[in-house]
Design a protein around this nucleic acid. Structure first.
Length: 590
RNA sequence: GAUCCCGUAGCUCAACUGGAUAGAGCACCCGCCUUCUAAGCGGGUGGUUGCAGGUUCAAGUCCUGCCGGGAUCGCCA
């Protein structure tokens, strides 16, 4: 692996060597960005921890480290502060050098992983017959950002949308369609085919039928039994049901693909729960034979409780008492499928936090069955999108906010904002709409991803698609201004040159550029995209300050002009990289 | 009832393995467009981090108890 050139790593090496020279562990030398930028660029807290370990005076240790650090060309000043903090101020030369590296690096200073892995992302959560709504936004946006990040860092990523297409809901729908259109051939057991090629139901029909069916199934026990029966028959292969079900899937997929295209989200696989089906009979027989599956209360279950459990851990239902496969079984079947095809070393399920118990059960069962070890399976749960009342968000009329409605509204607001600001007046209507949409998507994605993945957040439409302050459009605005600057520079024949750091604003900007790996590593290791947002925002902010403080093209000194232009271009590169990882596309102008 | 998560400025959110004076945005107040996009920049007001203890040189962060909110707890996914 190439040696790190992060300023923190370089300084840590120096400090680590100094600790080692004192007979202490080099790891105490870890340097981090200072909490007190007024006092230092970087700080090291290791002297206090080391002192505690060996029973010495922390300031004494720190003083020795400081003396050693002062000898480094990276360091302009070093001192001991408070109980034993080591404060370091970087030399302008070190900053300039780092800035040059970032400017020359196609990856804008961001490194990859040492050993790439085969990684699987499961976006489970979208269902057949259900339109995407605000609640589905999170898995899509979070999962997409993470798959981009993992790819960028070098892993071999396979993403699977993993539609919910195989459970009781399918039986419910079949029966609901049967009630409305009983004469369709799909319900005629004696029909020999072929079945019609066009779907008897549209997406709107499905959107209407599903809630209806679901409600009946909840209250009416007889209906529920019929739904179970239909589900079982579908799974057993009844031709008419299969044909009708296929229509449900296709119709739904058209809508989902429209949303994905609009959001710029792509999947490698459009599989569903049903694709696990071929693997299940064999799996079930195997688990029965090895006595991992037990027959209990009419169903085949796998016990996953452990003595160390503090909470109740129910068994998984492999095959229910109707002989149908539920989501436990299909998730296990999917694991078999993936093991035989992709053979991932790590699988991540980007699914609502409320399903934490479900995944815990499935992972344990997978481990027990010897499919994939628990350590290779991770549930990346996320919080719910709530309304002002703290409950899952509903529109004013009590319904759910559909995703395409949200996007349409954001597009319209964005376009109006452009007109108000008299921007985009010189471009075609089509390009203006395209820009407005990019801005809208940036607003939506950034708003969602800025929140810590695991927590719930309160959704407020106006704030969600706002374009001022800490928002996606702010980032785009910063990037677009640099692009505009670059075009002008090109036109004037100005070329970037060697970077020298003189102004405070330049210093602060390079410090931000250097921090990119902390952000990527944090986001990657913890699977938390908000670190990307935080860094992108800080970078854009640092650039905006620099831009206001340091004239570039109007600067009379050609050396300064070339240096600042190089710094701006390096910032653009890193900003676009980060926006790309967040899933935001940068227009050329706005 | 059990288990888990959350409680930070008026509002919405951050805070890396415990570190120094808890940071942003919005809102509010004051300044900045005859120089590169004002969707911007600079400055200001605003905090007993739910409450009470404990561990530590150091606690928003770790431990205990309490209060408040949410989620989950075998055949719907």
């Amino acid at each position: 692996m190439t040696k790190s050139t992060d300023l923190a790593d370089l300084l840590s090496d120096v400090a680590g060597a100094a600790f080692a020279a004192q007979g202490l562990e080099a790891s105490y030398g870890a340097m981090r960005r200072s909490d007190r930028p007024d006092l230092a660029d970087f700080q090291c807290n290791g002297a206090m921890a080391a002192a505690k370990k060996v029973g010495k005076n922390p300031r004494e240790i720190a003083t020795a480290i400081v003396e050693a650090m002062k000898a480094s060309p990276l360091v302009a000043a070093a001192e001991v502060a408070g109980p034993g903090f080591i404060n370091v101020k970087l030399s302008a030369a070190a900053l300039s050098k780092r800035a040059e590296e970032i400017a020359a690096d196609t990856r804008a200073g961001a490194r990859g992983v040492e050993t790439p892995r085969r990684v699987m992302f499961d976006f489970g959560g979208w269902n057949v017959a259900k339109e995407m709504h605000i609640g589905h936004l999170r898995s899509t946006v979070i999962g997409d950002s993470l798959q981009r990040l993992f790819r960028f860092r070098g892993d071999h990523v396979t993403s699977d949308v993993h539609l919910g297409d195989w459970g009781l809901q399918m039986g419910q729908l079949i029966n609901e369609v049967k009630l409305e259109q009983p004469d369709l051939p799909y319900f005629d057991a004696g029909f020999t085919g072929p079945y019609p090629e066009t779907s008897p139901v549209s997406m709107d029909d499905l959107g209407r039928l599903y809630p209806q069916a679901s409600a009946k199934s909840k209250t009416d026990e007889a209906r529920r039994d019929e739904d179970r029966k239909a589900t079982q028959e579908l799974q057993a292969g009844r031709p008419g049901y299969r044909a009708l079900w296929k229509h449900f899937c296709n119709v739904t997929r058209v809508g989902l693909e429209r949303e994905c295209a609009s959001l710029g989200v792509k999947f490698d696989l459009w599989k569903g729960e049903s694709d696990a089906e071929p693997y299940i009979p064999e799996l079930v027989e195997d688990l029965k034979a090895r006595e991992i599956a037990e027959f209990d209360a009419g169903a085949w279950i796998v016990r996953v409780a452990r003595e160390t459990d503090k909470k109740e851990m129910p068994p998984i239902i492999l095959v229910n008492r109707d002989g149908a496969i539920g989501y436990h079984g299909s998730d296990l079947g999917t694991i078999v499928d993936r093991k035989r095809t992709v053979d991932p070393q790590l699988t991540m399920y980007v699914v609502d936090q409320r399903q934490a118990l479900h995944f815990e059960q499935v992972f344990r069962a997978s481990d027990r069955a010897g499919l994939m070890p628990e350590s290779a399976l991770e549930h990346l749960g996320f919080g719910t999108v709530n309304g002002p009342d703290g409950k899952p968000f509903k529109t004013r009329d009590g319904g759910v906010l559909k995703l395409y409605e949200l996007i349409a509204q954001a597009d319209a607001t964005s376009l109006a904002r452009m007109q108000e600001a008299e921007l985009g007046a010189d471009v075609s209507e089509a390009e203006r709409a395209d820009i407005a949409h990019k801005v809208a998507v940036a607003a939506i994605k950034f708003s969602d991803l800025s929140n810590v993945r695991t927590t719930n957040y309160i959704f407020d439409l106006d704030r969600f698609i706002s374009f001022e302050g800490k928002t996606g459009p702010y980032l785009l605005y910063a990037a677009v201004r640099i692009k505009s600057l670059a075009r002008r520079a090109e036109g004037e024949g100005v070329k970037p040159g060697p970077i020298s750091i003189e102004l405070d604003a330049e210093r602060a900007l390079v410090m931000q550029l250097d921090a990119v790996n902390d952000a990527l590593r944090g986001a990657y290791d913890k699977r938390l995209p908000h670190f990307l947002c935080e860094h992108a925002y800080s970078l854009a902010q640092a650039f905006s300050s620099f831009y206001a403080a340091a004239p570039i093209l109007v600067e009379s000194d050609p050396v300064k002009k070339a240096s600042r232009l190089a710094l701006a271009l390096a910032t653009l590169k890193q900003l676009e990289l980060l926006l790309g990882l967040i899933g935001i596309e940068t227009p050329d102008r706005m």
